[in-house]
Simulated assay, not measured.
Amino acid sequence: MDVLSDVVSAARTGRPHSGRVTKSAPFAERFPPVPSAGFHIVLQGTCWLLPSQGEPIALGPGDVAFLPRGSAHGLADDPSTPVSEPSTTLTGDSDEMSADRPPTVVMLCGAYLLDKSGPHPLLNDLPEVIHLPTRVGRHRELRAAVELLGVELDSNARPGSDTILLTLLDLLLLYILRAWFEQQHVSGHSATGWVAALHDPAVATALRAIHEDPSRPWTVEELGAQARLSRAAFARRFTHLVGQPPLTYLTWWRMTTAARLLRTSDAPVNTIAQQVGYSSQYTFTHAFKRQYGSPPGGYRHHAS
């Protein structure tokens, strides 16, 4: 299991949604904070993203703007256009194309619901806004997913459309995150944190081992052997890049995996406890409550 895919699977809840949005100038909409990760992708034309903090960001054809924490923001044809009342959805109100008001911009907009009770530190490392400008030869997989998503949204509910849309939205999220992490790595912006951790051979190997088999009673020595480092060298390196010691991360990931299983399956609590490495349901319940503030049964009831 690669770490990025695993993190996204654990964080995602519910069904993502998206839609094609057409705007004609002048327009300026505000979007309040939402408990989801939102995206805006320009298919045609231009517009401006107005972050809650920082300078306006010009968006052109092919540009992707991703807001990992659903931060308040705006969209406008020009930064000087007066902003309207907040919209209730990330897609806003779509204008219809007309002869007297030609479209200024055509976008794909949407959102992913994320579990906010225990966000993965990898997602916490992301900035408020990820802007991926289009460039020839860059992010080809992302461009292909955007094109397919746009085609499917125009297909008028052909057979299989629901499953195809969900699959494409999952791919889109992974391609956005992959593109950003690779961009940061190439530019050398991060010597620590998850950008560095995912590209460090030793730490990435240990992370994959933990994610592939969280129920195994890992020791620091065993994880160090996987990374081909001594116990002490591995522990220092892992803690420096990931931000917490190896076994602390292991416990945290076990609880995160357990939370996903509680949300998405009907498996008994004792079965889930065994799946994440606990032979004692009492010990598992105590560890889960320490991370999530409620016992597994209460968490499952609230999540449902």
Rank of each mutant, 00 (worst) to 15 (best):
D2T: 06
D2N: 13
V3C: 03
S5G: 05
S9E: 15
V21C: 03
R30Y: 06
P33R: 12
P35W: 00
G38A: 13
F39G: 00
I41Q: 00
V42A: 15
L43M: 04
G45S: 06
C47G: 05
W48G: 05
L49E: 01
E55L: 13
I57N: 06
P61Q: 14
D63R: 07
A65R: 08
F66D: 11
R69C: 10
H73N: 01
P82F: 15
V83T: 11
V83L: 13
S87E: 02
T88D: 08
T91A: 03
G92N: 07
D93E: 12
S94I: 01
P102M: 11
P102Y: 08
V105W: 05
M107W: 04
S117N: 13
P119I: 10
D125Y: 09
E128C: 13
H131K: 10
P133Q: 01
P133A: 03
V136W: 08
H139W: 08
R143E: 08
V146M: 04
L149C: 01
G150P: 04
E152D: 01
E152Q: 04
D154W: 05
D154N: 11
S155G: 11
S155A: 15
A157P: 04
A157C: 09
A157I: 12
T163S: 03
I164A: 07
T167R: 13
L169P: 01
L171D: 04
L172G: 00
L172R: 01
I176S: 01
L177W: 02
R178P: 04
F181L: 15
F181D: 10
Q184W: 12
H185C: 06
S187P: 09
S190D: 14
D200F: 04
V203F: 12
V203T: 09
T205V: 06
L207N: 13
A209S: 15
I210Y: 07
E212N: 10
D213P: 00
S215G: 03
E222S: 15
L223C: 14
A227H: 02
F234E: 12
R237I: 00
T239Q: 10
L241S: 03
L241A: 08
V242C: 12
G243N: 09
Q244D: 14
L247Y: 07
W252G: 12
W252Q: 14
W253K: 02
T257D: 03
A258N: 05
R260Y: 06
L261K: 07
R263H: 08
D266L: 08
N270C: 10
I272M: 05
Q274R: 15
Y278F: 15
S279M: 09
Q281P: 01
F284H: 13
A287P: 05
Q291D: 07
G297R: 11
Y299V: 14
Y299I: 10
H301E: 13
H302M: 03
